[in-house]
Design a binder for these strands. Structure first.
Lengths: 373, 373
DNA sequence: TTTTATCATGCAAACGATTGTTTAAAATAA
DNA sequence: TTATTTTAAACAATCGTTTGCATGATAAAA
């Protein structure tokens, strides 16, 4: 009987469990059992199963056959305990429901699978204590490496030092600690910010606002630097009132743009380091009757799938998320392979692309077709 | 040195690894080491760490302190091997980047964490072989239970029988095998389909098309049944030409609606079992100049976050995904607790809600406010 | 004081695999 | 035929915990 009652719960049916056809084996078959049945030893069975050592073809096939017949499943815990290695890579992202991160994971999966590793996915929800707990748990379960995109709160790195302490290699992707002595796969955020801002200037917008994220994270710092550099190259002084630095959500985007539009000299365009806050601004402006892109230009960042669906479709910066994931996984596997050789640190930088859609295309030039789902 | 070169790769910097400040311990501290240092035995240390058995407060705190000082991290593999249980629940979903599934996972995380379990997330990408591999790997790593939403290709259930064979309990959520002898947490898809269709009829639409998914999955069957029931209650005969049964993607939605609009008696509304195919239809119709909702009504299914962002915002059916996740986790933990008692199977059904937005609201009545992100 | 119960800890055997070292048998060379 | 190499399989230790049972010390009951 389930006793909890939640919202929207319609009804609970509880049926007495009819005996399943499959006999429930209380005891799992082990290589010991296989060995006994074949009148041999566990070492022979183990070697036969893995093709290690010198095993006759006859024995090998006998073992394989019996393993299948007895539905043998290896006990990873025992194997790992003895061998000391797990062939499992931990993957930590702030949240799995962002297109950017789930695409990174897709890239990681592709590469790691090909190399015979399995992955463990976990999300920190941008909360430092979660991140620490996840890392602790991954150390305990002997992952052989970790791929991580750190959370917004991650200002100290004691939990990452733990990994070094235990000799577990790790590779940052996208969101990283600002030290090039770590293995990192990054995008050129400066360039992304620069391209986006330059594009708005090229489109004739004059007074460009900017939303960014926590400046603790290098990626947001760099996007902002790119924004500032583009302004400077066009000889435009930057206005601190037009910058909102902790603005990554839709709600915050709405509030920030409202404040800015009430300034004596309101902006006529926005480059946001987040598609979500750009969306908030877009929704607010539409609601206020401000015409986008005629009166106001918007460029977001990340190419979240909704950007192609909103109206008008949003110009944004694509980060080649799948490539990032692939590269991070490649770098990681490389490290694992060369673990005894000279230790080198790799910093891989991937170039972003500007996807020009409607929110910035005031002259209705044909650029790219909006991505479809 | 990283050798692969990919698209968009800008440059790779390889730095000789400067010696890290943290000494890399080749050997991890074990309870044996702690025991030796305290002149006691591993059993005492183990009991002190877990609070099991009878341990003096003095010894307990001495052990705890030293464990912290020596940066002790338990070896889960050894612990699990000995104890035979893992406190880890496997979670398998078709894809993690669907709002519906990631919300389910959020609900699962909340409940399992509270109960002291950790979870392993994996995605099948709707591919049966992946699903099988994931389950195999989870059996090997001794998960104590599995929460699963099956893939579209999952017509046979031999891999699930494997779980029964090994005595690993599992709970389906949302996408399930059509047998009530399994533990399942479902939404009332029939009701969802009925509500959606009835709403369109109430809004005065007459000729309602329907997109559905693979009829192998009960959820799509039931949504279709709800659609048919609503038509019948309104005395409207159903037209087979207005039903597209393998239509879950945006592309397919576009193609299907195009075909239907060219019929002698084209539809004036659509209830789609998927927000994605509904979106395809919406984009097509907008492009063709058909006015939504004035000339054509659309209702989707799942309340994916983009549905509130498209223009016009889309009416859809919300499945209370977080609740589904929570309930699945509760059911699972319940089973684990009662593992020795009478075995009962629970079928939990959660009621969906219709979220009325613009694509169906031809009279511009105020219903609900569109959800924001 | 003796007997019994309680408590804290030690002892030693698992758990199920892997793997370095031997041994036995078969194949080859002398 | 004998000596040597190669091949296949057995032996046994080990990985780091947990846990049932034994032990000794102290406290409570008789």
């Amino acid at each position: 009987m389930v006793s909890m009652v939640h919202n929207h719960l319609l009804f609970i049916k509880t049926i007495d469990n009819m005996p399943k056809n499959i006999p429930i084996n209380s005891k799992r078959v082990t290589i010991k059992d296989l060995a006994k049945e074949l009148n041999t030893t566990t070492s022979t069975v183990s070697r036969a199963l893995h093709g290690h050592g010198t095993i006759s073809e006859g024995m090998k096939s006998k073992v394989m056959e019996l393993a299948k017949k007895r539905n043998f499943s290896i006990n990873r815990y025992a194997a790992n305990l003895r061998s000391g290695s797990s062939k499992t890579i931990g993957v930590i992202v702030p949240r799995i429901n962002r297109d950017f991160f789930s695409n990174c994971i897709a890239g990681i999966e592709e590469v790691t699978k090909g190399a015979g590793y399995s992955i463990h996915i976990a999300q920190s929800h941008d909360i430092l204590s979660n991140e620490k707990e996840i890392i602790k748990s991954m150390i305990e379960s002997n992952v052989c490496a970790i791929l991580i995109s750190i959370g917004l709160q991650t200002t100290e790195k004691s939990h990452l030092d733990q990994l070094s302490y235990y000799g577990i290699p790790f590779v940052f992707f996208d969101r990283a600690i600002s030290e090039s002595s770590y293995n990192r796969v990054l995008i050129d955020d400066f360039k992304g910010g620069y391209l986006a801002t330059k594009h708005l200037l090229d489109m004739g917008y004059k007074n460009i606002a900017h939303f960014s994220g926590d400046q603790n994270l290098e990626i947001y710092q760099n996007r902002t630097k790119g924004y500032l550099a583009a302004l400077e190259h066009h000889g435009i002084p930057f206005n601190d009132e037009l910058i909102s630095k902790q603005c990554l959500t839709s709600d915050c985007g709405e509030m920030s743009i409202e404040r800015m539009m009430n300034l004596p000299n309101p902006p006529d365009a926005l480059f946001s380091s987040s598609d979500y806050s750009a969306l908030g601004a877009l929704l607010f402006l539409k609601n206020e009757g401000v015409k986008v892109p005629e009166e106001f230009g918007i460029v977001g960042f990340s190419n979240e799938s909704f950007t192609s669906l909103v109206s008008p479709p949003m110009t944004t910066v694509d980060q080649h998320s799948i490539e990032i994931g692939k590269n991070a996984a490649f770098a990681c596997i490389n490290i694992l392979k060369n673990t005894n050789k000279v230790n080198t640190t790799s910093n891989i930088v991937i170039e972003p692309s500007l996807i020009i859609r409607e929110t910035s295309n005031r002259f209705k030039t044909k650029h790219n077709r909006p991505n479809d789902i």
